[in-house]
């Protein structure tokens, strides 16, 4: 295994309470409420721009981008993923590459089927 996975505080027999508590330093009540306001603000923004005359395609990509922003804050802060070890982060997040692939092939397929029958 490469050097970057080795860090001194994981050479314990088990997960100690000190290292767990250290990991929670990034998340306190202030940060939690900050994340709440970001999530609320993004949602209000999404609902309000859905009524404007912005072109549909731009709206679509804006919504997808903002959804990923919201997912980042929920998984990263609320689910604490931002403060986990790097191998843990990769193990959980990497499989979702398959979903990106699934979206690509099936949306492409659906569009093609629609065009054939027109």
């Amino acid at each position: 295994m490469s050097e970057e996975f080795i860090s001194p505080d994981i050479h314990h027999e088990h997960v100690s309470h000190e290292s767990e508590e250290k990991a929670h330093e990034g998340l306190n009540t202030k940060v939690i409420w900050k994340v709440f306001w970001i999530l609320l603000g993004v949602t209000v923004f999404e609902v309000s721009i859905s009524f404007t005359s912005v072109p549909k395609t731009i709206l679509l990509y804006t919504f997808i981008a903002l959804t990923i922003v919201k997912a980042y804050y929920i998984v990263g802060y609320f689910m604490h993923m931002k403060f986990e070890k790097i191998p843990m982060q990769w193990s959980i997040l990497l499989p979702f590459v398959l979903i990106v692939y699934l979206i690509f092939i099936l949306i492409y397929e659906g569009t093609a089927l629609g065009l054939i029958t027109l």
Partner: peptide, 20 residues
Amino acid sequence: DTTVATKKSVWDGGHSPFNV
């Protein structure tokens, strides 16, 4: 409870590589 930090991989066992 700290083991001697020899140069070994986190995947060699004996501790939690994910710290979870």
